[in-house]
Design a protein around this nucleic acid. Structure first.
Lengths: 343, 343
DNA sequence: CAGGTCGAGTTATACGAATAACCAAACTTA
DNA sequence: TAAGTTTGGTTATTCGTATAACTCGACCTG
């Protein structure tokens, strides 16, 4: 069957159904329920079907002033190994409200970012989700001043827009408390950044660790604390380092999963094995790693999807700026065992 | 300075510059170079600047008939741990041609896919990149029949649209030849799917392995071939299994990186270590894994970004359908050593 | 049966930008 | 100096849809 090359318009549908273009619009948008006779509706819908009509989103947006699009700007989220879930959550949530996502990864290039914002403004996005690959404090570009913006997996330095980010402190608290609950009292921590660093992840996780200990009445032994940089090798080195201290830990809270992996290896190198010789809890729930370690790593999950959903909700609600820490929950696998009762 | 709440239009710019709307359009689009006096141009551009004018993409597209958008439909790419690179490559390439990406992950839900296609047709995308999370044969939805489509990281069963996918066979050949080049002749292979499976990855990688061996005049010993399912555990079990054979391999080509990880562990469990006791080559270059193994895993990279770029190029060129295998190149790390010369 | 209401539409216009067609003055050129 | 050309714009129209405002006949209702 020969088809017109370009998509048909409402006028063509109207002609085929023997009505006016306005009627087609009324039928398709269900306005004024009883304004159109049932028989006419059917004729219109048949014509729509037969011609394969599909409304032109541009015309619709132009006329209505609503674009139905939400911008998603990220440094490297869409291509990052784990945080693509931010995009996933945003998309799902946006979709539910009838919106679509216009996403751009800027790779931290200012020109690309500027161009992306420009483009989004051209498309009259209803709001922008500004996502970071890792939890940090960001400066929202001034060019976004005109439109609703929510920062996700990050915190807005100026506090002018809402931020949605993981509750690192609570996560660290949860992890540590889990170990305490298993009977451990000598719990080492290997943090993922130096003491003078200002990244929220390391600061929060450590603070949570400390709170859990003090709430449980366990004295903090500085010899059990180490500072690495979040890489496997540091996990390895610092775990061995902890073993050289006089009074060894029976459990380790690793500041992230890669560090935890290093701890596994260090234990192996010492002829030991988790969780029998030492319990381990990680952080991040990196899904290409945590489930595959042996034993599976008990860790704290970063709530990417929930954060993204929350961000979109905030965007659509357009409230006044708020801070939104999102809970990080524990994922139990096999790396934690009860502390041995001292003989 | 008080700003109008909504974005200014060309009319407002025109008024401020003391010209007609048409002139503003002429200036901004640089048409009829000499048709507008230099002084007028400057006045217009100043007005644009002062008002913060930004062209309305909807009006522009409506008028021109060109949407400037490319659809990206994927099963789970945007949220997958590794293949987000497909999105990255598409975005970059589309961007260079002045297009933007409208991306939707369907999570393999047919209704979501249908809705996504519907939406994209509404937005009059100029073409659709149909991406798969893993290399397989797909059926392109009939609803896409009307618009240019390219399948990426997959092959179109019907062959009606262009396909861009990794050249698995060449990758397997490259991996194996690398081991042969290091002097190995007893090279085991642990494939990632059963012999009767029809996934291109396993079939191609094995075929490449075989070609490399036969080209080098090495006889294929069926005792060196194992079939797993691509998970760590299978790599572990089947490597140990290989070790129980009489004539052990000096190198293993693991069908993917996870399997290779299992091989590392199996060697360890046997008190052995790569590459001294056995060389290992993986496949996938999974970036959260391969660089962090000890020693770093020599593996074959999947060319996600190149595939995506190629797909977008094909889309924009709108040629007749073609098959486009893309080369997978070797990434050398530390898991391959020269074969010991038999004493 | 005049006047009002309701049902089922239609007509006209606006959204913002692109562009074809037109126009007035200034400048050539024979 | 009349006719033609160039310069530097302007006017009018179009893209496809939404919607306010209007119409027209049939149906009450007192």
């Amino acid at each position: 069957m020969a088809r017109k090359s370009s998509t048909p318009t409402m006028w063509e549908v109207a002609e085929r159904a023997g009505v006016s273009q306005a009627t087609v619009s009324l039928v398709l948008n269900n306005v004024g329920g009883s304004r159109v006779a049932e028989a006419t509706k059917v004729r219109v819908l048949d014509a729509v079907e037969e011609l394969g009509f599909r409304t032109n989103a541009f015309a619709k947006s132009l006329r209505s002033g609503k674009s139905g699009m939400i911008g998603f700007i990220s440094d490297e989220v869409a291509s990052a190994p784990f945080a693509g879930k931010l995009l996933k959550g945003s998309q799902l949530c946006a979709w539910e409200a009838g919106n679509v996502i216009l996403s751009v990864d800027t790779f931290n290039e200012p020109e690309l970012e500027a161009a992306a914002i420009d483009m989004m403004l051209s498309y009259r996005v209803q709001g922008v989700v500004y996502a970071s690959m890792y939890h940090r404090v960001v400066d929202v570009p001034a060019a976004l001043a005109g439109i609703p913006t929510v920062v996700v997996n990050a915190q807005d330095r100026a506090g002018l827009v809402s931020s949605v980010f993981p509750d690192e402190e609570l996560g660290g608290y949860t992890a540590t408390k889990h170990l305490i609950g298993a009977g451990h009292t000598r719990i080492g921590m290997i943090n993922i950044q130096p003491p003078d660093s200002d990244l929220p992840a390391g600061i929060g996780r450590l603070a949570g660790y400390r709170r859990a200990l003090s709430e449980a009445g366990i004295e903090q032994d500085p010899r059990l604390l180490r500072y690495g940089s979040g890489i496997v090798e540091d996990g390895f080195d610092l775990t061995r380092d902890l073993w050289n201290e006089g009074d060894r830990p029976t459990a380790i809270f690793a500041g992230n999963d890669r560090t935890a992996w290093g701890s596994y290896r260090a234990l192996e190198s010492l002829g030991l094995h988790a969780p029998d010789d030492c319990s381990i809890v990680g952080f991040d729930n990196q899904d290409t790693l945590a489930p595959y370690l042996d034993p599976g790593l008990t860790t704290v999950a970063l709530p990417y999807e929930q954060m993204a959903r929350r961000a979109v909700e905030l965007l659509l609600a357009a409230e006044t700026p708020t801070q939104n820490p999102i809970e990080c929950s524990l994922v139990r696998r096999g790396s934690v065992a009860s502390a041995k009762v001292p003989a």
